[in-house]
Amino acid sequence: MEIQPITTPAPSRHEQLMSKAEELEATFLAEMLAHSGLGETQGAFAGGQGEAQFTSFLRQEQARLIVQNGGLGLAELIFNSMVEAESGAA
């Protein structure tokens, strides 16, 4: 008896493009969150160096979750632009 390996189908080109578009929107949102000053603590209870080191990871995860739950709609616009550019219609 031969055991067949479990294989997952490769993502389609559209799935790859949408994934990259969502990644780009999340990066944009993380930068906007950083510049907004949202979540910065001040005073005696500020996190110091430890907080400064890991705040970017928290912001990136928050941005990723925002995109996952609908985001701003940038991912869809970016995706459509990439599909048009790839098809030669741009």
Rank of each mutant, 00 (worst) to 15 (best):
L24R: 11
E25H: 07
E25D: 12
T27Q: 10
T27S: 12
F28S: 03
F28C: 01
F28Y: 15
F28N: 04
F28D: 02
A30W: 03
A30P: 00
A30K: 03
E31Q: 15
E31R: 13
E31C: 05
M32C: 14
M32Y: 05
L33G: 06
L33T: 07
A34T: 14
A34M: 07
A34K: 13
H35F: 05
H35K: 14
H35R: 14
H35I: 06
H35N: 14
S36I: 04
G37W: 10
G37S: 10
G37Q: 10
L38Y: 13
L38F: 14
G39M: 02
G39Y: 07
E40Q: 15
E40N: 14
E40T: 13
T41N: 03
Q42K: 15
Q42D: 13
Q42E: 14
Q42N: 13
G43C: 09
G43A: 09
G43Y: 03
A44S: 12
F45R: 08
A46H: 11
G47D: 08
G47I: 02
Q49K: 11
Q49D: 11
E51H: 09
E51C: 04
A52D: 00
Q53C: 03
F54T: 01
F54K: 00
T55M: 08
T55K: 13
T55D: 04
S56K: 01
S56G: 12
S56E: 02
F57S: 06
F57V: 04
F57C: 02
L58K: 09
L58H: 07
L58Q: 01
L58S: 06
Q60T: 12
Q60S: 14
Q60G: 06
E61N: 12
Q62Y: 01
A63T: 01
R64T: 08
L65I: 14
L65G: 01
I66R: 05
V67C: 02
V67Y: 00
Q68F: 07
Q68N: 13
N69L: 13
N69M: 12
N69Y: 14
G70V: 10
G70F: 08
G70L: 08
L72I: 12
L72C: 09
L72Q: 06
L74D: 05
L74H: 04
L74V: 00
L74T: 03
A75I: 03
A75L: 01
E76T: 11
E76I: 03
E76R: 15
L77Q: 14
L77K: 14
F79M: 07
F79S: 02
F79P: 04
F79V: 03
N80G: 04
N80F: 00
N80I: 02
S81F: 03
S81T: 13
S81V: 09
M82Q: 12
